[in-house]
Amino acid sequence: MHINRNKIISILGALALFLSLIEYVIPKPIPFLKIGIANIPIMISLILLTPKETIILICVKSVGASLIGGTIFSWVFLYSISGSLSSGLVMLLLKRVLKESVSMIGLGVAGALCSNLVQIYLATILLGSGAKFIGLPLLISGLITGSIIGHLTNKFISSSKWIRSILLN
């Protein structure tokens, strides 16, 4: 059975929105600390989609998640989309260069760190140099959440019948 490429983007986009919704209802103990389960579809797209399609998916996810979170008309959206795009680009680059030598955990950590670095940079532009003090805790949290997301993605990819059926097409 042939599956339309755009359909895969839409299904992963819908999954990202669904996971954003689940993540939204879970309270965060610290405002910037979130696991980022909505990034799992982005990581799955690294093995299913082309770089261009992955970037489209990132945009769909960022806009949709901001709509659900009610942050579409705020600075938070700028943080979100710039963090997501930069981490997506880094993960794409690493996947393209290192191919099978890099695991999803490695990609997850690299993506999370890159996203956090961009967000810290944006925060220092918008809020002044004081914002750099949140840098260390943010990077540590990125290291932890990136590993968790990478592990979950690995687990999903290895057991998913859906991914196998798409790859066989």
């Binding site: 755009n6 839409s10 986009g13 819908a14 929105l17 489209i56 769909v60």
Partner: peptide, 14 residues
Amino acid sequence: EIISDTFFYFNQLT
């Protein structure tokens, strides 16, 4: 097409 399909599949997921 991608946007409308994304909303449609989101609807199906929820």
